[in-house]
């Protein structure tokens, strides 16, 4: 991979802080989120609603609008900041072209009054300055790429004439129109049926390999991550609590929240009478706890958990944000 050659990752997010000003108080959507995405790498960001996973990538795409505001940190794409004053022009060139995004609900992101063809060629003509005929040829290629059969026929159809899975394929085609380096997929299969989800995940994995894309996959489903991602970041209450290579993170989760999440995910290959739950509810992000945000729900919480500990690096490129678990992991004890 190219990452080794340049040594700068494709995308770096550093200590990102996003606040939302609501009448109930200031909601801290992202509280110091840092992650990197390398060339040709798929990073999965897993978290529950309100964990800050979507907020983080929306900040990358410049989609934080009132009442939200980026209050701190930096986002660098190929080493250049997207947030400083000089970055504004750069951002306009990069977003939507080199970095593109697909959303959860393809019905709301497609315009119902235009045909699929119009919407794809629009992107091509706007960003790449193609003429009508060239854009049309490319649109057919793109639909072919996302494995839509009879692409020339589909170009004339309207979004409501397509099924949910087909619409998401069209969205992916639009996302790939400008040959981006980074594709951000925000819960791309959540609104779809399981058998259709399987098709779309297969397609995404295939495209990532063939086009050597970097992908950020946002999801709440650990199963989806296991399928697609090289590295995984687990978010909780506006922070990343654990990040590492997918295989090792799933085989040996260190943070108690990651462990809890894995246990709570129902598995078809294991039988148990009762589902394992994590007691309690996620904290209020208007007034988040000073220390570890998970400690009120954590079975292993100790006195020291009131003080926060930064993401601690471990040997295998893993970072964990829990001092108890890290200590136990280094000394070899399992946290029980």
């Amino acid at each position: 991979m190219r990452a080794a050659a340049t040594n700068t990752p494709l995308l770096e997010v550093e200590d990102l802080q996003v606040h939302f000003y609501t009448r109930a108080g200031v909601v801290q959507g992202a509280r110091g989120v840092s992650f990197q995405v390398g060339y040709g790498e798929t990073l999965g960001i897993v978290g529950e609603s309100g964990s800050g996973k979507s907020v983080s990538v929306q900040a990358v795409m410049g989609l934080i609008h009132t009442p939200g505001r980026i209050e701190g940190g930096d986002i660098r794409y190929k080493g250049r900041s997207l947030l400083d004053a000089a970055g504004r022009n750069y951002v306009r060139r990069v977003r939507g072209k080199e970095i593109s995004m697909i959303f959860q609900d393809p019905m709301t992101s497609l315009n119902p009054v235009f045909t699929v063809g119009t919407q794809i060629t629009e992107v091509l003509r706007h960003h790449l300055g193609m003429d009508r005929a060239a854009a049309r040829r490319r649109a057919v290629e793109l639909l072919d790429l996302v494995e839509i059969n009879a692409p020339t026929k589909r170009l004339k159809q309207y979004p409501h004439e397509l099924s949910g899975g087909m619409r998401q394929r069209v969205m992916i085609a639009i996302g790939l129109a400008c040959e981006p380096e980074l594709l951000i997929a925000d819960e791309p299969t959540t609104a779809l049926d399981v058998t259709i989800q399987a098709q779309i995940l297969e397609l995404l994995a295939d495209l990532q390999r063939r086009l050597r894309l970097s992908v950020i996959l946002i999801t709440h489903d650990l199963g989806v991550v296991a399928e697609l991602c090289h590295r995984v970041a687990v978010m909780y209450a506006g922070r990343i609590v654990e990040v590492g290579a997918a295989d090792t993170l799933f085989a040996d989760p260190i943070h108690p929240y990651t462990q809890g999440l894995l246990n709570a995910t129902p598995r078809l290959d294991a039988v148990s009478e009762r589902m394992v739950s994590i007691d309690g509810v996620p904290p209020d992000l208007i007034d988040p706890p000073r220390g570890c945000a998970f400690s009120p729900r954590c079975a292993h919480a100790r006195k020291g958990c009131a003080q926060r500990q930064a993401l601690t690096p471990l040997s295998d490129g893993r970072h964990v944000c829990c001092w108890c678990a890290v200590n136990d992991h280094i000394t070899g004890a399992t946290p029980q």
């Binding site: 087909m166 058998t195 399987a198 098709q199 297969e202 650990l222 199963g223 399928e227 997918a246 078809l268």
Partner: peptide, 27 residues
């Protein structure tokens, strides 16, 4: 069978090894 195989397992090696029955087509 298709429904069973469509639910992803949160375990990368197992998931990679599973036989996926992602029948194409729509309802």
């Amino acid at each position: 069978e298709a429904l069973l195989s469509a639910v992803p397992v949160p375990d990368p090696p197992v998931q990679r090894a599973r036989r996926r029955i992602a029948y194409s087509g729509e309802a």
